[in-house]
Write a protein that binds this DNA or RNA. Structure first.
Lengths: 155, 155
DNA sequence: CTAGTATGTCAATATGGTTGACTTAACTAT
DNA sequence: ATAGTTAAGTCAACCATATTGACATACTAG
């Protein structure tokens, strides 16, 4: 991974450009660091990031419908079906028809699915917890404010 | 994009789990929001994110060698060559042999390459600047501290 | 002259995604 | 009972981005 210090102007007060580029690189390398630990676990199981995203959002929204999951993940049903099928076949996700409409398939994690999701997301929680601990409560609050604003801008 | 509020426990003080999951989702959706504007520009040109990364890091490190760029991007030379060739062919990147070692190819952005890079990265700067402005200077400092810690943990 | 290095290229492969089209099962309105 | 609509699944073809293994040329160091 590139050493961020090579990008810094030598001792001069940072221009807006430099400061924003630093932030861009922090986000880029930070996100890479953030996704690396679960990626390693996924690789052990022959799974990819899309599997983690499915496990995560199904875990967050038990009984979510297939169609709703498509919306959350922002992919087509063709893109969802193969990895979802794989997770169902591996016994990590369970599916049943909804009581109110038997066309609707509702998804939930199995016990093993919850365990794997906890392991994957747990790796990310550990990282974030450590980053927040190092920064302090005020830094964490600031981080939240900035990230909320970033997400909001995307709407 | 999913409404984040649906994931929040109703009115209860957040547990560590809930607060860390919120942070995870902020990072996930924030990064998605962050990459969307340049993605749209790239799509117009028939380019992808890998092209932006090349433009960005070549711009940041004029005269960077091919091998060093591989290290920064964390890809193999086979993965780099096709998009790099495309950018060279489009007149966005220039390449010449190094004075000290003619085996070494050094890369730099052309005027057009700089213009496109400025446009792509500019879109991201605008977003970050707005997020920082909304959060305030202290929030920005906190964000930096947390992201530095996150990047550092990846090493 | 030879061994090693920088880079490019090739083939085969994998992952994650898209579009367009079609199917079955189920629901709803008439 | 039927026609139209919806939820989901499947298929084929395609694309972008990436890998590994292998081999090539040009160049450098000794």
């Amino acid at each position: 991974m590139v050493d961020l210090t090579i990008s810094r102007a030598p001792s001069a007060p940072e221009s807006d450009d430099a400061r924003l580029r630093k932030a861009i690189e922090l986000l880029y390398f930070g996100y890479r660091a953030f996704t690396a630990p679960p990626d390693r676990i996924l690789e052990e199981r022959g799974l990819g990031r899309v599997h983690h995203r499915i496990l995560y959002f199904v875990g967050r929204n038990p009984q979510i419908s297939v169609n709703a999951l498509l919306g959350v993940l922002g992919v087509t049903k063709q893109a969802l079906n193969a990895p979802l099928r794989q997770l169902v076949d591996m016994g990590l996700v369970a599916t049943d028809t909804a009581a109110h409409d038997r066309r609707v398939r509702q998804l939930q994690l199995t016990v093993e699915g919850e365990a794997l999701e906890a392991r994957l997301t747990g790796a990310q929680m550990v990282q974030l917890e450590a980053a927040f601990a190092r920064g302090g409560a005020q830094a964490e609050a600031g981080w939240h404010a900035v990230m909320e604003a970033l997400v909001g801008a995307g709407r």
